[in-house]
Write a protein that binds this DNA or RNA. Structure first.
Lengths: 110, 110
DNA sequence: TTCTTATTTGGCCATATAGCCAAATAGCGA
DNA sequence: TCGCTATTTGGCTATATGGCCAAATAAGAA
């Protein structure tokens, strides 16, 4: 791969990788609605708080969320809401896949 | 996490994970312009053909590309072009990150 | 200062992934 | 049939990731 393009694709891949986890997608979607602190998110996700904290740091390192300490909580916020538009596209892929799958199933029943 | 939501997030995460690799992003972008066969993509990416073939099967399993044998090549095509819109969003995140980074640098120089 | 609450970090293990090489497979033309 | 070209698969190793537990840290309240 062209040396000038490589860092560009690597940077994009890092962002996508940061999103590519069920718990982190839940976090992203939730933070789009409202800011949340770690223990609220932990409750929603239902895994260990240390695990959730690590997920949050992945999102933060990718620049997808930011955090702010207030009162006795650290509140996390979604930095870029256009991410949500993308989820719509992912859903399109998923339903296209489902349709494909159905087509195959039907052709097997014949 | 709610049992009814979990599979949904897992499905989305699988799609994102399939995209989250520099070579696969290059493939996606290239296929949006035109269909390509494995050896063309291999040349662009510059790694072993077996590696590229595996990347393509990742994309195919996620339903992002489809393949069609014609003449003596297997041509790969992008199935869902809305993916490209998303790349735009990723770029927004990246430039927001870069701006942030600059701000920090400037504040250090003071 | 000591306790408490909220969060992060380190350690460990199990699993997944990328990459290369070599070998297998598929289809075509001689 | 044999050999050629295009592609995939298997095997291997190195590295990264997710998850939990336990311990560390931070900041406020008693």
């Amino acid at each position: 791969m062209n040396d000038s393009l490589k860092p560009r694709y690597e940077a994009r891949a890092r962002i996508l990788k940061a999103m590519a986890h069920p718990s982190r997608l839940l976090i992203i979607e939730e933070l789009q609605k409202q800011e949340r602190c770690v223990n609220e998110l932990t409750e929603m996700i239902g895994s260990d708080m240390s695990t959730v904290s690590k997920h949050l740091s992945v999102l933060k390192n990718a620049g997808l969320v930011s955090d702010e300490k207030r009162a006795n909580c650290i509140y996390y916020t979604l930095r870029c809401t256009c991410i949500l538009d993308f989820i719509g596209c992912v859903e399109e892929v998923l339903s296209a896949n489902a349709e494909e799958h159905n087509k195959i199933l039907k052709s097997c029943k014949k």
